[in-house]
Design a protein around this nucleic acid. Structure first.
Length: 232
DNA sequence: AACAGAGCCAACCGCGGCGCG
DNA sequence: ACGCGCCGCGGTTGGCTCTGT
């Protein structure tokens, strides 16, 4: 993977190119495609004033020819304060693996436990790095090799989303969690261990307390110290 | 140097849930 | 109770760069 400085430089070039494209657009239809620096600035200003809610009105107030959805996505993935851009650390990667094992493809929930990371970033990282690595390790294991790390993640080899039905239930119970990064939500979650069956035997593989895991009341917004409790 | 395929990431799309009138 | 609009989520795609041949 290329160093992130280069990555951001690339993005700047792309942004300039897309700016030209946008300039050529007539203003009748809703803009799609890459965001320009100007659009970013407008969106940031309006969001700072009005808060990150009511995206449709934010889009209108900013004078952006964008749908609210697009504004929300741009804000969450790029403009939001405290966004952490750059390499995923080993600790974060390990955490992603564990959380994915626990939650499946609940990217927003996983992102909620990784300060400064976005669901999109984690999803991309999973799809481009981790899923492949897991598949490789699984193949190796089937051939005959075995090690601790393989054993840890061996239950994650299902196609993403295959147990969403079960997890929608969890999602419903923990809906607030995804906004935890913004601050103060304290959640009371029913134990996932009572789901039983299929993939959720995963939970029993993890030696953690689910209630404890989703109790955000004792942590600051942007630290990873809490992770240590769950790493072994 | 030119090309093809792989890798990566930002953004879009479709769907479900929720709140409000 | 119902319909509508908005929000949030996960899946997917588009387009650029990188790497190998």
């Amino acid at each position: 993977m290329a160093p992130k400085k280069e990555e951001s430089a690339k993005r700047e070039v792309m942004k300039m190119k897309s700016l030209e494209a946008v300039m050529k657009n007539t203003k009748r239809e809703v803009n799609k495609g890459a965001w320009t620096a100007e659009e970013d600035q407008k969106l940031a200003e309006v969001t700072a004033i009005h808060g990150a809610k009511k995206w449709k009105s934010i889009a209108a107030k900013a004078g952006l020819n964008r749908c609210g959805k697009s504004c929300r996505l741009r804000w969450l993935n790029y403009l939001r304060p405290n966004i952490k851009r750059g390499n995923i650390s080993d600790q974060e990667e390990d955490l992603i693996l564990r959380l994915h094992k626990l939650l499946g493809n609940r990217w927003s929930l996983i992102a909620g436990r990784l300060p400064g990371r976005t669901d999109n970033e984690i999803k991309n990282y999973w799809n481009s790095h981790l899923s492949k690595r897991i598949n490789q390790k699984e193949k190796q294991r089937n051939i005959g090799g075995d090690d601790d790390s393989t054993r840890q993640i061996s239950t994650v080899d299902q196609k993403p989303g295959t147990h969403l039905g079960e997890q929608n239930k969890i999602h419903g119970e923990m809906k607030q969690d995804s906004s935890s990064e913004e601050g103060t939500t304290t959640t009371t979650t029913t134990s996932a261990s009572n789901k039983g069956g299929d993939d959720h035997e995963n939970y029993s593989n993890l030696d953690i307390d689910i209630d404890d895991f989703f109790d955000f009341s004792n942590e600051g917004p942007f630290n990873l110290e809490w992770v240590n409790k769950f790493l072994y």
